[in-house]
Computed example of a mutant assay.
Amino acid sequence: MEQWLPSLITETPSEGFELAIKLSRMGVKKTQPDMEVLHKLRPEYSESASLLIESSKTIAMHFQTVSQANNYWRDN
Rank of each mutant, 00 (worst) to 15 (best):
W4F: 02
E44H: 08
K30Q: 12
G16E: 06
R25F: 01
L41T: 04
E47A: 05
E15H: 07
S24N: 13
N71R: 05
S48K: 03
T58A: 14
S50W: 03
E44K: 08
A69T: 09
S7Y: 00
L51R: 09
M61F: 13
L41K: 07
E47L: 03
K40M: 10
R42E: 11
D75W: 09
I21L: 07
R25P: 00
D34C: 07
Q68T: 15
G27D: 12
L5K: 10
Q32R: 09
Q64A: 14
L23M: 14
F17V: 00
H62Q: 11
Y45F: 15
N76H: 04
E15C: 04
P6E: 06
R42I: 00
I9K: 14
E44P: 00
M35L: 13
I53Y: 03
P33H: 03
P43Y: 02
H62R: 08
L41E: 09
D75M: 08
F63I: 05
Q3G: 05
S48F: 02
W4M: 04
M1F: 07
P43C: 02
G16M: 01
G27F: 03
G16N: 04
L23K: 05
T58F: 12
K30P: 07
A60T: 10
M26W: 07
E11K: 14
T65V: 15
E36R: 13
M26P: 01
S56E: 12
F63P: 06
A20K: 02
D34K: 03
I21T: 07
I53K: 09
E36Y: 06
S46R: 11
E11T: 14
L51P: 00
T10S: 09
R25N: 04
L19Q: 03
T12K: 06
T31L: 13
P43T: 01
I53E: 12
E36D: 13
S55V: 01
L5C: 00
T10E: 11
M61I: 12
I21P: 00
N76A: 09
E18H: 05
T31M: 12
L19Y: 01
S55Q: 12
K29V: 07
E47R: 05
E2T: 05
E2V: 08
L38W: 06
M26A: 09
N71Q: 07
A20P: 01
T58W: 10
E54Y: 02
F17G: 02
M35D: 14
E36P: 05
Q64V: 15
P13I: 00
I53C: 03
S24I: 03
L19N: 01
A20F: 02
I21V: 08
K29D: 09
E11V: 05
L38M: 12
E11S: 11
L5D: 02
L8C: 00
A49L: 02
E44V: 10
M35S: 13
Q68P: 12
Q64M: 13
M35I: 11
W73A: 14
